[in-house]
Design a protein around this nucleic acid. Structure first.
Lengths: 348, 348
DNA sequence: TTGAAAGCGCTAACAA
DNA sequence: TTGTTAGCGCTTTCAA
């Protein structure tokens, strides 16, 4: 034991935690009154409440979760599937989002329970948690690729909120929160235009990516608005550093853009690779903007300008929606769309 | 509903999940027999087991967690405090570790529950979960800075496994798993020596960081072994990109090292900054090695050689230790030390 | 405003 | 090998 511990609880070490009955006996009231003191304090006479509260503090009582869950048929747990880590990319919004979600959830009285499930096991993962009543609701994060989770959960009447629009099913009525990628990219493009760039290239994802096309629209919109040429300045590739690198090389050769706006930091890093291979300096010779404001964007020299999603706010909106769904009666909210910001750094 | 859902469960939508009693009735056995079929199948006669199993499958029965938890006084949940995200650094091992931990835990029948707690609230966060019997055990990740969690948990007899040695309390007897940073850095230094470098600098953390000093020892050891000079080639700074950048500049001016070994990818990125400012090319003019094999190391041009912790293996060892602790009677294992590997990339 | 009774779904201990 | 009984700790319902 390295150093003195401040907040030693009144509970004797090793002994089972005190129960409602212990508190009741100590306070000289019935168990029910203690329960009310905890859950409906307004029902008690002030002096009784204080007496009970005192006993609770003395004993260090905290309601037993399992018992409460069994009785109320709720776990106060929110399930979140952890998506596989993509190594070799700059995609790392999970960390920031997760932290915000956990923090916001706690303020609402919920904890976050993680699980993994891929491929064929995907639905099974959700199903198991639903059937064992392990969680009250889910936060779903992969809303593209016609993901079956949302559909399944909706069909099962399991409460959930999606981070991401229901791209493939506009008729879906579930709660969702998303960030307007098109606006983010427009912000980025506008930023480059403001810096005097006229040949601004777009490196995005394959055409079947709805998110990619949405982001691309932000670039196209701003280019049109300023009467700037877009032909020959866009290309769509896979989301890897290598693809970004190759795309940048091809675009530089064919159209000599002075700025690049990319659908992801991963692609933008690819552009940086090409620049450094050609002895070009990002920010001085060619401007580059990424998307996600990853750690990579923050630390790579000379700093990668990037579109930043307001993940903290996303978490707040998600939890708010979740609270609504878990209310009795449930309150359904429409989708919530948030605007990203632009983190400007050396690369532009 | 975008597309057809494959695995519709037999449970009618909206209806409460089936209970043990439902299965018992359907199979024509007692509730206890169903319970045994689930938990101690070897007690049943094969034909009874099959009949019960059939009923379970038909009804899509999964034991209610709350009820089981209440009865067994266990939650099958493992608590993990999510440490704050450090923006502007390359420290992002959390993602990889978390994923491995969740996956390994599941195989052992556990789920991971996240919580946040900082500063004064630190112990309260743990305490609340302990008192409400929300989790069976914890995984503790910040074992430096004389962290009070481990001491508190140990004093409370709460099962936990630490990722990280008990640096500040060698007398501690709790279970831990750690990665040998010194060996990792030795690996890195040896790698540079093998490439013909003789003036290899060390950029580490402040002297009061036990982890930092441990990593440094790997560098010193290899340098001595090869009879290479270390004086004037080491410095200790804060773990930020800026500090790494400044340290690299100072070292280059004073001792003209041809290689840098750093205590973190964050510091190594700082070195890359200095190199690019001076028109030096990492990997060609000066070699750089980081620590953690972060996403940043993986994608930054020209690729940052870095010491990689075997986080998947760490998770496995942690869960194994946890299973031991939660066994009856508990099985205490000594600390487990794992060796890192070196991910070689363009920077060396 | 407080208390008594019942039961959520499960499993440990015992009995048959 | 299977069934019966009891009770984990809590909250809902109803009565005092």
């Amino acid at each position: 034991m390295a150093r003195p511990v401040r907040s030693l609880p009144p509970v004797p070490v090793g002994a089972p935690p005190p129960t409602l009955a212990d508190v009741a006996e100590r306070a000289g009231v019935s168990r029910q009154t203690v329960s009310n003191a905890v859950n409906n304090p307004e029902l008690l006479r002030p002096d009784t409440l204080e007496r009970v509260q005192h006993a609770i503090d003395e004993l260090g009582y905290t309601p037993n979760r399992a018992a409460r869950n069994l009785r109320t048929r709720a776990s106060h747990l929110i399930g979140l599937r952890l998506t596989p880590v993509q190594e070799g990319t700059a995609n790392a919004t999970v960390d920031r989002f997760l932290h915000s979600l956990v923090e916001t959830s706690r303020e609402a009285g919920y904890h976050v329970l993680l699980f993994t499930a891929d491929g064929d096991q995907l639905l099974t993962g959700y199903e198991e948690l639903v059937r064992s009543t392990a969680v009250d609701a889910f936060v779903v994060t992969d809303t593209f690729l016609g993901n079956p989770q949302a559909a399944w959960l909706e069909a099962q009447h399991v409460p959930f909120v999606a981070f991401g629009r229901p791209w493939d099913s506009p008729e879906a009525t579930h709660a969702w929160v998303d960030v307007d990628g098109g606006t983010g990219v427009a912000l980025a493009t506008e930023h480059l235009v403001g810096r005097g760039h006229e040949r601004i290239a777009w490196i995005g994802w394959r055409k079947d990516s709805r998110i990619g096309e949405d982001r691309r629209s932000g670039w196209a919109r701003v280019m049109y608005r300023h009467g700037l040429r877009t032909t020959g300045l866009a290309c769509r590739v896979e989301d890897t550093v290598g693809s970004g690198r190759e795309a940048a090389a091809a675009l530089l050769d064919a159209a000599a853009p002075t700025g690049f706006v990319c659908a992801s930091d991963t692609l933008a890093i690819g552009v940086l690779h090409t620049l450094s291979e050609r002895g070009l300096v990002a920010g001085r010779d060619v401007a580059v903007v990424g998307f996600d404001d990853s750690q990579v964007a923050q630390v790579v020299p000379p700093g990668l300008t990037s579109v930043r999603q307001p993940l903290e706010q996303v978490a707040v909106e998600i939890v708010t929606a979740l609270e609504g769904l878990l209310d009795t009666p449930p309150v359904r909210r429409p989708g919530v769309m948030l605007d990203p910001t632009l983190a400007v750094r050396g690369s532009s």
